[in-house]
């Protein structure tokens, strides 16, 4: 079929420059154009190997802002890059771990120590999830067939929903830590920009869980067995409403993305419930 006409050899050199610029020492958000170039590269080449290699030659451990920006960039490439990026990332867990150790155990001179530690913890959890559940893409974009597939085997469906909820809890912990570290001065944009992929990922997970739980209620017809999942779902719903509300107060964030609006109360999940959330 019709493909893009790109100079693959030229792109390789440009990738190195884009990685360097996305992870420079400026205490700002990684520039979208550079992150986008990394993402597009993985699609054009159907490979992320050069992306990882390019990351590893950057002196990002020397500076906590650079380390944090590298983690944001990696997260975005895992989310929006070619699916192969999620697979190839599994071999780089050790490198991610080295960033955490490099950040030490303190707060760091500019206060990124804890954030780096928690970001690595979250990315490892995300990669572990994708290793277990390879049918999901990096942003958990809704695909009907997956919820259908899981409800054929209720045990598998139950486990998948539980794993998704665990990841959702980890996003919630991490976003709280970021909010606690946003300074009321300049230079807040670097930290706030880490919320962007978290908003997108949490919303994708939320939509998936909602649709899978509905499907499970319809096919299983055993509302009691699913009660623990409903309870956890409701709790996560309220936490997400709060998270999105707080994001809505950050002007810089709302200029970058549309923060989703959830109904105040969780939507019904039982088979006979007619109300559907505006997903």
């Amino acid at each position: 079929g019709p493909t893009r006409n790109v100079d693959m050899t030229k792109q390789e050199g440009e990738l190195a420059i884009n990685i360097k610029k996305a992870t420079n020492t400026d205490e700002t958000a990684p520039k979208r154009k550079h992150v986008r170039a990394c993402i597009v590269y993985t699609w054009d080449h159907k490979s992320s190997l050069s992306f990882w290699a390019g990351m590893k030659v950057q002196p990002i451990l020397a500076d906590e802002v650079q380390t944090f920006k590298a983690l944001i960039t990696v997260h975005k490439v895992l989310q929006e890059g070619h699916p192969v990026a999620l697979k190839e990332a599994q071999a780089n867990v050790g490198w991610l771990e080295s960033l955490r150790r490099g950040a030490g155990h303190g707060e760091g001179v500019r206060g990124y120590g804890k954030l780096i530690e928690e970001y690595v913890f979250f990315l490892r959890a995300k990669l572990a999830f994708h290793r277990q559940h390879q049918e999901f893409n990096g942003t958990f974009e809704y695909e009907e067939y997956i919820s259908l597939k899981s409800i054929n085997d209720p045990n598998e469906g139950y486990e998948t929903i539980t794993d998704l909820m665990t990841l959702q809890d980890q996003i919630d912990n991490f976003q709280k830590l970021i909010f606690a570290h946003i300074p009321h001065t300049a230079h807040s944009e670097c930290r706030i920009s880490a919320l962007v992929p978290l908003v997108q990922e949490s919303y994708g997970i939320y939509k998936f869980i909602t649709s899978m739980l509905r499907a499970m209620h319809t096919t299983l017809g055993d509302d009691d067995a699913l009660a623990p999942l409903r309870e956890r779902y409701n709790m996560q719903h309220y936490r997400l409403v709060k998270f999105y509300y707080e994001c809505g107060q950050l002007r810089y964030l709302t200029s970058l993305i549309t923060v989703p609006r959830l109904p105040q109360d969780p939507p019904g999940l039982l088979a006979e419930d007619d109300e559907r959330p505006g997903l």
Binding site: G1, P2, T3, R4, K31, R32, K33, R36, I39, V40, W43, E80, H82, V196, L256, I257
Partner: peptide, 21 residues
């Protein structure tokens, strides 16, 4: 119809512009 095929195959070009700044 080739335009449709091109757009499907290269949708990441358009998708990633959703955060253009």
């Amino acid at each position: 119809e080739l335009v449709v095929t091109w757009a499907r195959k290269n949708i990441y070009i358009i998708k990633t512009l959703r955060e253009f700044q």
